[in-house]
Design a protein around this nucleic acid. Structure first.
Lengths: 240, 240
DNA sequence: GGCACATGGTTAATAGTATTCACTCTTTTA
DNA sequence: TAAAAGAGTGAATACTATTAACCATGTGCC
């Protein structure tokens, strides 16, 4: 049973409302518009009251970050699991497209997760939960691992990789907790580099004067990336 | 002769000092730390005085943006012109490396030029000078044009490019004012996508837990990009 | 030279922000 | 039921931007 006292219930409600207000304000006004006073107004209390719930302004930003991270992960995971479990091409395509769509629909949040606001959060006292890199690496790492097991990837041999780079690739592999040659990790990074560049172009509006709609570039890139992995665009791709 | 009145001289000096202080403060404290009050303190006047020089806080940010843009352009141009004028590989390599080095040494400024702060500036009343896209496109566009003229590029034929994408590529080509097939533009964008992704990874510290030093990844990427262009790493590369 | 005007600074005032502290009212608990 | 704990408020401090009124001084003209 919900053996919640009246106080606990009210507290949970206000915390929920405040988080929701913070997310909405951040999305509408940008992170710099996310102020303690604005959230207090939105939930109908005075600013000092929120200090019983959050660690000041930084705590509000952090709360939004945690919310947004969960939403993002969920989004990508659902896009991936919407595909045929044996259709790796569709899985990678859909997951990547989900990243693009979410990022475009949530530019402020993208900035928090992967942009300029990220380093500040990472350097905060709480830091970034290790889970994230592992989980996100996992989304893409698992299909890559399968492609490798099935012998479909053409990868560089360990000894052909610059030792400095190889060390970094091993660190990354350890972090996401997967077990395949660092040549596979290198392939993942090569793909991510391009995806991330396209995301930043689209979200930050760089070159927007020409590439107003990022989808044509995205689809062209996906064809290229799937090609690198020995795959083709899947006819069974399921978009939401 | 410098027929400057005392007043004009003092004004020029204060403007110069204020701009320098603004740049320093932004670099040290981040753009959010760049306040009218802080600059006023640094140059020894009261905050309202700066309103005779800048359009408030937004004007200060804009002044820093303009300064930084000029510095960035100059940096890339000098790295490029330091190379043998016939060594396209060295030119592209050096210019790209200059972009990376400058971005890492000036993370806040990078954010202003190509990151989250960029859209706000682009949407301000003054907008972004058209010159920039043209100039930056030119740095890389000119070597690409030469490679194409020399018949060294393998590019997609116009009719093999998705019409939606082709239209965007034509817009881009018009904007930078160069004259080659859109397949060449596509190659440029493919390269930029990867460079930009690597820059954002390095500057924003994404995946920093593993890729603390971005240079190994950068050099690996350059080998790949030069390969796409039918080039090899130049032995004559001159680094500063 | 002296006078009028333009320039560029000041102070004061308004309004917004974060944050801490002391206090009070309410709820919980012993 | 009385003590303790919790959660809000109001006041105070210290920042921030920005505008307005004001004043001193430099500039240019007669």
């Amino acid at each position: 049973m919900t053996a919640l006292t009246r106080r606990e219930r009210l507290r949970a409600e206000l915390e929920r409302d405040a988080k929701a207000a913070a997310r909405r304000i951040a999305a509408e006004e940008g992170v710099e518009g996310l102020t303690v006073a604005a959230v207090a107004r939105a939930v109908g209390v005075t600013p000092p009251a929120l200090y019983r719930y959050f660690n000041g302004r930084a705590g509000l930003v952090r709360a939004v970050y945690d919310d947004v991270t969960a939403e993002f992960m969920d989004n990508v995971a659902r896009a991936l699991h919407r595909q045929d479990p044996d259709d790796i091409s569709a899985q990678l395509h859909a997951a990547t497209r989900a990243v693009l769509d979410w990022s475009l629909a949530n530019k402020v949040e993208f900035d928090l997760l992967m942009g300029a606001a990220y380093p500040k959060i990472a350097e905060s006292e709480e830091g970034i939960p290790k889970v994230i890199a592992r989980e996100l690496g996992g989304f893409f790492g698992v299909p890559f691992a399968r492609l490798w097991r099935e012998g479909r990837l053409t990868i560089d041999a360990d000894e052909d990789i610059d030792p400095a780079l190889a060390g970094q690739l091993r660190t990354y592999r350890t972090h996401v907790g997967l077990d395949f040659p660092i040549g596979v990790v290198l392939l993942m990074v090569i793909c991510w580099r391009q995806i991330y560049g396209l995301l930043c172009m689209a979200v930050y509006g760089h070159h927007q004067f020409a590439f107003d709609d990022p989808v044509p570039l995205f689809e062209h890139m996906m064809d290229h990336l799937l090609g690198i992995l020995g795959l083709e665009r899947s006819p069974g791709l399921r978009m939401p």
